[in-house]
Computed example of a mutant assay.
Amino acid sequence: MAEQRRADIVENLTNVRNAMQNASSPQETRLVAVSKYKPAQDLLYAYEAGQRHFGENYVQELVDKSAQLPKDIQWHFIGHLQSNKAKTVVSIPNLYVVETVDNIKKANTLNKACDGLRPDPLRVYVQVNTSNEEAKSGVAPADCVKVCQHIIDSCPRLELSGLMTIGMFGRDPSEENPDFKCLAECKNQVEQALPGKTLELSMGMSEDYVQAMRAGSTNVRVGRTIFGERERPQKKE
């Protein structure tokens, strides 16, 4: 059973890597394996196949898995971060980036949480709500430059590294994705406002990561295609 599970994950991971190589995108793109609700053993199978960047949506899962798994894993926090959990997240030594800074207050909270816990600035992405959906977090595209400028000016313990979006589900993959186009436009606006700054773009998931790469993504977050369908763990009574 375990060997079959290992084989399935390695095969899926290989298929994703091959699809990325064949995407004909002009830029290098990082693969982040998203392991929400999956056991640490599944991540270890992917790790043994050479995967090093992993994404987690929930703070407790990130805490638990980072304690169990190899220390050279580069963790991406990609979920909604509550202010009272900021210090817990930034205290993880091999945290690579927090991708979900969605307002100035969150940036200030993370900046303060880093004090005394991290020797180097923490990489952050500003999350942009490119589809203007009420249920999604993220700054409005019109406010993106303002939030990025604030991080540069007022958050010395943070390193502004990129922009991130969760596009609207159900977009036609054969057509230009307006969410990806919007985030690329935000990148251009920020880079014009902050001369010398080059930003990464985190966009694209299992359904559309190849399309996202062709639109300029430098960081794709792929979960289900690697690890299979997710089942929320049953709460213990």
Rank of each mutant, 00 (worst) to 15 (best):
E3H: 14
Q4D: 15
A7N: 12
L13S: 09
T14N: 13
V16F: 05
A23T: 06
P26A: 05
T29P: 05
V32I: 15
A33E: 01
K36C: 11
K38A: 00
D42N: 12
L44Q: 15
A49V: 07
G50R: 12
G50I: 11
Q51I: 02
F54P: 06
N57L: 05
Q60F: 09
K65Q: 09
S66R: 07
Q68E: 15
Q68R: 12
K71N: 13
I73T: 12
Q74V: 01
W75M: 04
F77K: 07
G79Y: 12
H80T: 09
Q82S: 05
Q82E: 02
S83P: 00
S83C: 00
K85L: 08
A86M: 03
A86I: 06
S91E: 14
S91V: 01
L95R: 06
Y96I: 04
V98H: 01
D102C: 03
N103C: 15
K105C: 00
K105M: 02
K106F: 01
N108S: 14
T109D: 11
N111R: 03
A113E: 11
G116V: 05
R123V: 00
V124H: 02
V126Y: 01
N129H: 04
N129Q: 04
T130G: 06
S131K: 01
N132C: 08
N132A: 15
N132E: 09
E133L: 06
A135E: 06
S137D: 02
G138D: 02
A142V: 14
D143P: 10
C144L: 04
V145P: 09
V147D: 05
H150G: 04
I151F: 09
D153C: 05
S154R: 11
C155E: 06
P156I: 00
R157Y: 00
M164P: 09
I166W: 08
M168A: 13
G170K: 08
D172A: 01
S174D: 14
E175S: 11
E176R: 12
K181H: 10
L183T: 13
N188Y: 11
L194A: 14
G196P: 13
T198W: 00
L201W: 01
L201G: 10
L201R: 06
M205C: 09
E207C: 10
E207Y: 03
E207V: 01
D208W: 13
Q211R: 14
M213P: 07
A215C: 13
A215L: 12
A215I: 02
S217H: 11
R221A: 04
R221T: 04
G223R: 10
F227V: 05
F227P: 06
F227D: 02
K235E: 15
K235V: 14
K235R: 15
K236G: 12
